[in-house]
Amino acid sequence: MREFRPYSKRVNPIHINIRDRKEIKTGVRLSIPYMLLLKIGETYKIRLPKNKVKEHEFRVINRVHYDGQNLVNWFGLDLPELNPDVNNTSAYNQIGDRFGMTGYCEVEIIIDRFYELFSEAEDDIFKMYYKLLEDACEIYNYFLDRYSAVVRHRQVSKLTPLDFQKFTAFHIKNNEVVSSVHVAALHHVVFIEKKDGVIIPQSSVTERLQELLQSECDEGNIATFGVSAVRQLFTGNYLTGIVESITQLEAYLHLSYKKAFLERGIDEKQVETLLDSFTLRKFLDSLPLIMNRNEFLRLSEQNDLSLINQAVNIRNKYVHLGRNIDELKKFEQVEKYINAINNFCVDLSNFCGIDNMLDKSKSGW
């Protein structure tokens, strides 16, 4: 087993005075895990809504096509009567290839601002590289929405900094590269000997999986919104992730109140009519009315309710105004919101007596 920590190789690492930095732009070269249907070298100018003065650039600089027998197998053409000549060929899939099975492309993003690329403080510089990737992904994802709408290549996914282990960053002045850095294993990687196999979950995890797959509890399916929220997070759809997590939250709150009111002898039709009049804010604010003091104290101590309320505000602004008012663009920022809501929903489901698939205590993984 070999372990690799983040590594960087610097090329001409010159110090740039603060007064000269306004003339410097920062570029980054990335490998996008699928093909973009664009001409190599064609430049697209991008101005983000939050700062229309800054003009960024995007271009595809290379394509890497997969060819040979693997492609034939992937498309199901490995039959005697269909098997094509695979020598010196590549594949094109008309409806797009979001998994990058036919190949990938290399792109270049020029950001209209200076980023520090060279520092003696290793932790600080890798944080800056991550920040650079965050901003590059914001520009790329803005581009991708418009590309997907016009080119109709809509299956491809947005990207986050966690999608990149290697990249090249560089300073550019008057269209000339003046210094650069090559980064590898940004998120840490471990190479395992083939004889050791792959890392697999312990038996408690696989037993839990078997249990959930055989479960007949319909309410347990609500947690799939929480799972989907995490999936949206990792595919760069930050606001969609927030919305899906809040959808899960509303459902568990509704069940919690219904359980409490039915236990108090209120007719089920009356309960449904009453709950239909509740807003999400009222559901959250009225929790002390349906729980005893110890239950609510435990819920408050184990969960960051202020963080959940912030997420609700973000969701409301997005759903009702159609805008990213809070400029959500940081992976860790959105991850905190989604994790907070998912953990809160686990506690609510326990209050309702519902088995929640996101309950980590039941698998230990």
Rank of each mutant, 00 (worst) to 15 (best):
I266D: 00
I266E: 02
I266T: 01
D267G: 00
E268W: 03
K269N: 15
K269H: 03
V271E: 05
V271G: 02
E272P: 00
T273F: 07
T273L: 09
T273S: 13
T273D: 14
T273E: 14
L274V: 03
L274C: 04
D276T: 00
D276R: 03
S277T: 07
F278C: 02
F278V: 03
T279F: 07
L280K: 01
L280E: 04
L280W: 06
R281D: 14
R281F: 03
K282R: 12
K282A: 02
F283S: 10
F283Q: 08
L284W: 06
L284C: 11
L284R: 05
L284Q: 07
D285S: 12
S286Y: 11
S286Q: 13
L287V: 06
L287I: 11
P288W: 04
P288Q: 04
L289H: 05
L289I: 11
L289F: 11
I290P: 03
I290E: 05
R293H: 11
R293N: 13
N294K: 14
E295W: 04
E295Y: 08
E295A: 11
F296M: 12
F296S: 06
L297T: 12
L297E: 15
R298I: 12
S300F: 05
E301T: 08
E301K: 10
Q302S: 15
N303H: 13
D304F: 04
L305W: 10
L305R: 11
L305S: 07
S306V: 14
L307Y: 00
I308Y: 06
N309I: 00
N309R: 14
A311D: 09
N313T: 13
N313V: 11
I314W: 07
I314G: 02
I314R: 06
R315W: 09
R315Q: 11
R315N: 08
R315F: 07
N316L: 04
N316S: 15
N316P: 02
K317S: 14
Y318A: 15
V319T: 14
V319E: 05
V319I: 14
H320L: 01
H320N: 02
H320F: 04
